[in-house]
């Protein structure tokens, strides 16, 4: 599904990603872990097409397409979804209208007819139930005055409506208490299928107690320095990052 080869990217001539290689197949969950400043958020920004980031080398293909050639909205139309670390507040636009616009725009790009509002509303209500979201939420302004937990749940709600092939969850656990974390993780698990894949970007292991990854990658200084199964996350939790970083620094010294 997603293939990243020797990806080098940065911002304002400051190289942050120094050669990333990653392959994600349908049905898989990958966790990307690493200390602050290792390049985790840059990787998610580059995959989703944030324009400030400049790709200096390497490639990203998604279902055989050259992803780097596409605008952010085209990437979304092709099935990529980024759950933001800091979702943006948009006063004046209700959650329902926002979601309607994103679904309508995607269908337009796919040359499909718009879904009538009534049917969309029904779909929204179903997904809200799945994510234990209270009534009245649809008419609230997008993320305005939302608590940290509500913002993250809103991201997962949008994900459930857009049904992406590849979801990237960027620090979805940050700022969440344990109950909110459980609800968000349950949502992700319920939406999981053999046809879609998820990349979970996280600083801490605790989210991975709820969303069990197939692969864990450690990112440091713009490179994946170690990959393994879910047990790698537990090992990191216990021993921290230092031992891997030391090994890696020796290797790239």
């Amino acid at each position: 599904m997603l293939q990243i080869k020797e990806l080098k990217a940065g911002i304002e001539s400051n190289q942050i990603l120094k050669g990333i290689n990653l392959e994600v197949k349908a049905g898989e969950i990958h966790a990307i872990m690493g200390p602050n400043g290792s390049g985790k958020s840059t990787l998610s920004a580059v995959i989703s097409g944030k324009e400030e980031y400049e790709v200096e080398g390497g490639s990203i293909t998604f279902d055989g397409k050259d992803l780097l050639e596409l605008d952010p909205e085209e990437r979304a139309h092709n099935g990529i979804f980024l759950s933001f670390q800091y979702p943006v507040e948009i006063p004046g636009i209700s959650v329902s209208n926002f979601i309607k616009s994103s679904i309508t725009e995607r269908r337009k790009a796919q040359r499909l007819e718009a879904i009538p509002s009534k049917d969309l509303l029904k779909m929204m209500r179903e997904k809200m139930e799945l994510l234990s979201i209270k009534k009245g939420y649809l008419s609230r302004n997008m993320n305005e005055g939302f608590s940290g937990g509500e913002k993250k749940r809103n991201e997962i709600f949008q994900m459930s409506m857009l049904e992406p092939k590849l979801a990237i969850l960027d620090e979805t656990d940050s700022g969440l208490d344990i109950d909110a974390l459980r609800i968000v993780a349950n949502g992700v698990n319920k939406l999981r299928s053999v046809d879609n894949a998820t990349i979970v970007i996280t600083h801490y292991q605790r989210l991975l107690d709820y969303i069990i990854p197939d692969f864990v990658h450690v990112l440091h200084n713009g490179r994946i320095i170690k990959s393994g199964g879910k047990e790698l996350a537990l090992e990191l939790e216990e021993k921290g990052y230092d031992w891997i970083i030391k090994e890696a620094d020796k290797k790239w010294a």
Binding site: P72, A76, L82, E105
Partner: peptide
């Protein structure tokens, strides 16, 4: 905000219009 909307599939022109609407609202 523009990038947030584009990442949800909303084209740049539509995203600008929606944000403008939100501003005036």
């Amino acid at each position: 905000a523009l990038f947030y909307m584009r990442s949800r599939g909303i084209g740049i022109e539509e995203a600008k219009a929606i944000l403008t609407y939100a501003f005036a609202f």
